[in-house]
Design a binder for these strands. Sequence first.
DNA 1: GTCTATAATTTGATAGAC
DNA 2: GTCTATCAAATTATAGAC
Lengths: 195, 195
Amino acid sequence: MTASKAGEILDIAERLVRRNGYNGFSFRDIASAAGIKSASVHYHFPAKSDLGAAVARRYTERFMAALGDPGASRDPMNTYVAAFRAGLTQDGQMCLCGVLGAENTALPAEVAGEAKRFCELNTAWLERALSRPGQLGAAEDASLRRQALVILSALEGAMIVARNLGNLTVFDEIATGLTEARLLEARQADKGNPR
Amino acid sequence: MTASKAGEILDIAERLVRRNGYNGFSFRDIASAAGIKSASVHYHFPAKSDLGAAVARRYTERFMAALGDPGASRDPMNTYVAAFRAGLTQDGQMCLCGVLGAENTALPAEVAGEAKRFCELNTAWLERALSRPGQLGAAEDASLRRQALVILSALEGAMIVARNLGNLTVFDEIATGLTEARLLEARQADKGNPR
DNA sequence: GTCTATAATTTGATAGAC
DNA sequence: GTCTATCAAATTATAGAC
């Protein structure tokens, strides 16, 4: 399954961005890791913004594909937390779009646009996962959206705090804390419904 | 009033780091904003890591001073959220130590150490704020620490998500979501020892 | 404290040979 | 597709005059 050279470049770039940020890697970093010269990297991705946007787009698509359909799983939140946890505990990598959010005002517009799309897709997925089947009316609940935003934010922030503390197990403590706060549960119908 | 030149440099550097990241500013950026030359910036802060560490240290001290004693306020959580909210809504600025966490693996050790200290002080402050007066035993509660970590993470992540979405009011939605989840409340004694 | 001048390196990017 | 060669600009940092 030998990846194409362009795919290899995307792999290397993604790792570097997730560890050091968009401004924390150079074409020469990538070239040396890929065993080619920086001019060859420009052949595949003419400008750095092209590479950055391509990395972010591929990341988002892979991430959403790993999540799957929130209605198809019985415990979608477990899947969700695991998706964020994966990169962090392997190699200390942030969520790519978390890094980009931190650097937001320094990003080319194309790159920032991909990070925005990631957040939109994630909150939409979470809202669907949190609304119980047969309660489609709940999708209009503003507090459902807030719950989705809290979960996304807490997981993004969990990586930041864990990396700052130099202790990646902090991520798991935070996931446990979210469970304790009953944030990772689907919502009960609470509109005028007595229990 | 008139800050010293070193203080002015710290102000400018802090703003740039919080908007663009540690790797997103240069000595010349600072020099031009301060109306001096980059060599003069080096007079005050010999290396970039010195400047970065000084910015982070001052930020942490100012932040903790603004929080005050968590036991002295009747609603410390309001104070806490407001402290994070302040910079974001003015100028789209991240928490400084949130930015540094995202760039963690690219930071000089001195800078990363300051970001770590910020997280340690914040979780300790939150644990005190969350433990009800007269319940000192609660400080040993592991779930109290988890609650503190969730709050810190959610607020750090809230800035990232808000910036990515290009809508800073998202931060307030998330703060409301934390309140709804009863995370911003002091904890009830829930260990079966009624002493 | 601030300047000019400059060193030494890195960066994003292009031209053209193979 | 990859290379050599190169560019123009930017970067961190230092030396020494005022």
